[in-house]
């Protein structure tokens, strides 16, 4: 069993509008058999945080193209993207670059 993970989530560039306008969320992901990765985080966000129009945030397994992801202030492309294993106290930021966000 992997221990619960406490992380800090941030939404910006208009992506926060899909979360009732709330930009910052401190959340604790529950203990589960597998370690948490970003792919599972996206599923968790959809089930627990996303207020409306999931298709404007996720597409397939990943984030919608045009939404940038930063893990601890670094491009997620450098961190393994969906496969990145979340650590306690990680800071994950989603920034929409889409006009209508």
């Amino acid at each position: 069993m992997a221990a619960p993970v406490a992380i800090h989530l941030e939404f910006g560039g208009g992506a926060e509008l899909l979360f009732n306008g709330v930009k910052e969320h401190h959340v604790t992901l529950p203990s589960q058999s597998e370690p948490w990765d970003v792919k599972q985080l996206l599923v968790w966000i959809q089930r627990n945080l996303l207020k409306e129009r999931p298709e404007l945030f996720v597409q397939g397994d990943s984030v919608r193209p045009g939404i940038l992801v930063l893990i601890n202030d670094a491009d997620w492309e450098l961190m393994g993207e969906l496969d990145y294993r979340l650590q306690d106290q990680d800071n994950i930021v989603f920034i929409s670059t889409l006009h209508g966000g």
Partner: peptide
């Protein structure tokens, strides 16, 4: 962030 005509469209 300011809503536009197409926000959330």
């Amino acid at each position: 962030s300011i809503p536009s005509l197409d926000t959330k469209a």
